[in-house]
Design a protein around this nucleic acid. Structure first.
Length: 669
DNA sequence: GGTAAAATTT
DNA sequence: AAATTTT
């Protein structure tokens, strides 16, 4: 053979697409409530602005600023509460499923909520092989796709593209430069075709799901992601140089990477940068949390060029570990062999957490248990949505008219872990003060015949209360003798398995005893002491009216899940006239319903159904900063702050601000 | 910076 | 099993 002996231990370069959904949270909120389209929108999580729409950024709103700053800079900013992630998970999964169905057997990896990597080497190679010896017709080339999900997009078996037009969108280097400056090196056909494929997938995501995206196309993950971020909303960028062209590749990639902050490369996180900085500056501990700037990565920006010139491969291996150091060192040259790993159909862990400020997070033992129970309940709810196959598609029942199939768990977590971060000091480094304990997950939590609240309560009694005790009694800070300071509580289930668990726990549901002691009152109906109930959440439960819910949308839900939703909000199903034709509702006959604060732990609406989560002016006032003069909070008023309006078409009463969207809903159906 | 999840290290 | 690190 003419192959050099043991030619490449190193892998062949892969053709990688990296997709990034544009402004995902805002885009999702706009799908739920089209009234938000074109307006300056901010997504709020706790007291901060998690993200802002491009309109808002144009008006001077920075990401990562406090709500007060945001409102100050841009009074017209519309805030949406984004603490409940259900809606984003839903779209994230739809995008992932769509991409996977288009690409067939090619690996598709989900990175977080809004990013997807695809290794399309196989697909491109096969396509090119089929084209061998043929020439493009008048319409160009036909790219035949893997059999897509027939129910959702049977039309889309492929797409036309014109290879002679080069890559759609931006390229690096620019095509002119390729032709004139260099000796006419054309981009490899495979990367051009991959670029067309990426373009088509973006088109599908936009037309079938309604989300805009950006993409990067390159010969490895790091570079694909990196160039994808170069031109952001609704664009794509292709790095056309092939690693085989060693000289040119190095030149182009270095020109690209050298001026960048190394932090932009995957793997160069805060810790790694601190380690490197300490050794470069020779001043160990110079880079701990900087309280003056309140910035985690600090002072000196380390560029890729600087790192490569001031340190060596050996330094990297010594400082960061032989394996990891080598990988990171190679990254400085844009060398990255990380394979695109197919994301499993089910995650390996599922966790849920809530954060607490001093007000909410200074709790006695009862209070801690109460918060844990709320989280446990949310977690169980999520497990049922995501792990139980009850004919759900993307978390929503598909057809309520079919006989209900037996609800079967698709995965069984076997461990449960409780993590608590104590203390509210600003000084604590990002991840410090976290302690976790884990235990076997009692099998009876899978018994769907037992009401979820009961299973949640049982889970608190065993084993969560015990785990909490272990954590809190081992040197967690407490404010007074009987108050604990907690800033984060997280509950995770892990070790998800396909096989049904066997280990059984005696009398799991029998109330009363924890470790031989009488159990503490946990359920809200139990012997909760004094003011605990009334201080659930940072505000008093807000009064809303049943008519505030979008009845039209609710009617569309299958009865069982709809009832479940309503039950969750404590709404008496009989109050709502859901199964009959809509009749007039006026404010006076709508019944007040108490709803807690919005968060993942306390969802206040079905995020897929509610028209939106727009935060009222008053709430902004409260959450920004406690200039609120009374402990009750301004929202304890009987009157809703927001005007309602009655739909002239169906008579439903909705928020005034959502009427546009409501009308649009009629138009669309 | 809040939330979720994975991988790696101890 | 717990803690750390990254995205």
């Amino acid at each position: 053979m003419d192959l050099p002996a043991r030619a490449s231990i190193t892998r062949q370069p892969r053709i990688v697409l990296a997709f990034d959904l544009d402004n995902m949270y805002v885009a999702c909120e706009r799908l739920r409530n089209p009234w938000l389209v074109g307006k300056p929108v901010g997504v709020q999580q706790k007291g901060l602005l998690a993200t802002a729409s491009y309109e808002a950024r144009a008006l001077g709103v920075d990401k990562l600023c406090t709500l007060r700053e945001a409102k100050q800079r841009c009074p017209s900013l519309i805030l949406v509460n984004g603490e409940d992630l259900t809606l984003y998970r839903y779209y994230s999964r739809r995008v992932f499923n769509l991409v996977r169905s288009v690409l067939g057997t090619c690996p598709v990896e989900k990175l977080g909520m809004d990013e997807v990597f695809c290794d399309v080497t196989e697909m491109i190679t096969e396509h090119l092989a089929e084209l061998e010896g043929t020439s493009p017709g008048p319409q160009g080339r036909w790219f035949s796709l893997a059999q897509a999900d027939p129910t959702e997009h049977s039309e889309n078996k492929g797409f036309w593209y014109n290879p002679s037009l080069g890559c759609p969108g931006h390229t690096i280097p620019e095509p002119e430069a390729t032709n004139t400056v260099n000796s006419g090196t054309e981009p490899p056909t495979e990367i051009v075709v991959a670029s067309h494929l990426a373009n088509h997938i973006r088109h599908l995501i936009l037309t079938q799901i309604g989300l805009g995206s950006s993409a990067g196309i390159a010969y490895n993950k790091t570079l694909a992601k990196l160039v994808g971020n170069l031109h952001k909303p609704h664009q794509q960028t292709t790095l056309t140089v092939h690693p085989g062209t060693a000289g040119e590749y190095t030149r182009v990639v270095r020109a690209l990477l050298d001026p960048l902050d190394a932090h932009k490369l995957m793997g160069f996180g805060w810790k790694v940068l601190c380690t490197l900085r300490d050794h470069v500056t020779g001043s160990p501990r110079a880079s701990i949390y900087d309280t003056t700037t309140e910035n985690h990565h600090s002072n000196t920006t380390l560029t890729v060029a600087f790192l490569r010139q001031s340190l060596t491969e050996q330094h990297f291996r010594a400082l960061l570990g032989a394996q990891n150091g080598q990988k990171l060192w190679n990254l400085l040259d844009g060398k990255d062999e990380e394979p695109v790993k197919s994301s499993p159909e089910f995650p390996l862990t599922i966790s849920i957490e809530d954060s607490f400020d001093e007000r909410r997070g200074t709790l006695d033992w009862q209070g801690v248990l109460q918060e844990i129970e709320i989280l446990a309940n949310s977690l169980l709810r999520r497990l049922e949505i995501e792990l139980v196959d009850g004919g759900e598609i993307d978390g929503i029942r598909s057809d309520s008219s079919l006989p209900k199939p037996p609800r079967k768990w698709q995965r069984y977590p076997s461990q449960i872990r409780l993590t608590i971060r104590g203390g509210h000091s600003k000084e604590i480094a990002y991840n410090a003060n976290r302690e976790s304990r884990s235990a076997a997950l009692p099998v009876p939590v899978f018994d769907l015949d037992v009401p979820r609240v009961e299973r949640a309560q049982a889970l608190v009694r065993q084993p969560l209360a015990g785990l909490a005790k272990q954590i809190l009694d081992k040197g967690m800070e407490r404010k007074t003798v009987e108050k604990y300071e907690v800033s984060i509580i997280n509950i995770a289930v892990t070790h998800l398995q396909i096989t049904t668990p066997t280990k059984s726990i005696n009398a799991f549901f029998s109330a009363g005893m924890v470790n031989g002691e009488p159990s503490l009152g946990i359920g809200s109906h139990l012997n909760v002491t004094d003011d605990v109930t009334s201080t659930i959440g940072s505000k008093r439960p807000r009064t809303i009216y049943a008519s505030d819910l979008d009845l039209e949308m609710l009617r569309e839900l299958p009865p069982d899940i709809r009832d479940d939703v309503l039950r969750e909000y404590g709404i008496d199903v009989s109050e709502l006239d859901l199964d009959e034709r809509p009749h007039k509702q006026s404010k006076s006959d709508a019944s007040p319903v108490a709803i807690g604060t919005k968060s993942e732990a306390r969802p206040s609406q079905n995020p897929l159904v509610a028209i939106s989560n727009v935060v009222s002016e008053h709430e902004i006032g409260t959450s920004v900063s406690s200039s609120s003069s009374n402990d009750e909070g301004p929202l304890s008023d009987e009157e809703p702050e927001i005007g309602n309006a009655e739909c002239t078409i169906c008579g439903a009463v909705v928020f005034s601000w959502s009427m546009d969207a409501h009308i649009a809903y009629h138009a669309g159906s």
